[in-house]
Design a protein around this nucleic acid. Sequence first.
DNA 1: CTGGTAAGTGAGTGGTCACTTACGCACCAT
DNA 2: ATGGTGCGTAAGTGACCACTCACTTACCAG
Lengths: 238, 238
Amino acid sequence: MQPLRQPIRLSRDHRRQQILECALPLFARHGFAGTTTRRIADAAGISEALLFKHFPNKSAIYAAILADICSADPGLERLRAEPPSTRTLALIVRGMTHYFMTAADGSVAEGNQKLRLTLGSFIEDGEFAKVLFDKVEQVIAPIFIDSLKHAIEVGDARPGLASPRDLFWFAHHTVCTLAATQLPSLPSLDYPPSVRLEREVCSYILRGVGLTDAAIAAHAALDIPFESFESSVLEFAR
Amino acid sequence: MQPLRQPIRLSRDHRRQQILECALPLFARHGFAGTTTRRIADAAGISEALLFKHFPNKSAIYAAILADICSADPGLERLRAEPPSTRTLALIVRGMTHYFMTAADGSVAEGNQKLRLTLGSFIEDGEFAKVLFDKVEQVIAPIFIDSLKHAIEVGDARPGLASPRDLFWFAHHTVCTLAATQLPSLPSLDYPPSVRLEREVCSYILRGVGLTDAAIAAHAALDIPFESFESSVLEFAR
DNA sequence: CTGGTAAGTGAGTGGTCACTTACGCACCAT
DNA sequence: ATGGTGCGTAAGTGACCACTCACTTACCAG
């Protein structure tokens, strides 16, 4: 005789969290309208009825996911402690690029889904992207800005038309679409292998923000020592 | 007595085209799953039944739209006729930037919807973006590439790590996300007024691809003579 | 042991989905 | 004038949608 399926009982908080974790990749991949409550319930291994005991409606699940994902930005403190310098600038650009590229290739599930939700947000009301960008602007943009200003003072960079703040976002935009093109399982654009591609785009960005070729070359060797920083730089919010 | 509503009879081709035109903004704004055949029929002022006389199913409407939008790239010939030069390079970057920015502010409905569909494509299978990018790579990338090579030979640009082809796409990526942030009615990122923003991002891109500051300054006055070129540059495919 | 509470579900609800059927009627070559 | 062709619709179809209800089961404090 087959044993009856025992439902696994979880505490309210655990179950809620589990539902959100299961729903995230579905919303990220299929969008709000393309994700059904039935599939979310199946993914979480529970009945739809229970789903609606934890959330009043489908929108509330989506909203909770977007809220959760905004608040997470671990291990960034070490980077904030770095002094403003040309080296730090190169480190940020390199870290940002690497973060986006690994997000695109799916090896960092969280980054992958954040990117998808951000792109989806642009199409809809832009609200999620706005909240996320506000956070990024508070947390990592200042380090970039201070470092760029410092680089200009030291002579490693030429001042330009755009403010350092705008240049930070231009750098972000470059890698954002780049990563987006690599998001689908069959990439929308062919590029060199990622190690080479990352270097190419870094040098484009560093030139774009005004760094001299000499300064760029001086910090090109960042590739190896960068390893030790990887864990901190790799994870900063988007 | 109220007159009976007379259905407006159109030829097969006209009706088909009209359906596609009405469906495009719906798919662009709400995605595939978020757009119902009922709403498409309403937008076109016809019954759902007629819709399914013209297309076998909903997917076919979507596919026809994507196919149509790829084939349209008017008035680019004049730009193709330009000789490879630093000036042409600046013109392309300026034109591309302007095209994306006006697409984002909604003043060019077609560009706006192309951008939305492209972003949606990244989230899904990337197929549409791939086809579109193939086309762009054939049509405008060569002009950019030749011009950049020329600029390097002449001494207006320094050679860099990345190939001119990759640099072309980096430039594209920069303005693509930039436009995406300005797509929602409440933009996801605050920026200076668009005239100033366009100049800022152009100088970032031109520096990024390796142009010397002198060469950039020499072509900054492109703002005014650019007018005459507007109609051709403005419309190139994405 | 027991009664209260909270986690859990099977079987629905009305509404909407993509899509179909059966039929009306305008147009035009004969 | 007329019959065939083809544009057009009203009124459906079963499937699936978000969401609810009546009810069962596990856990735990007294």
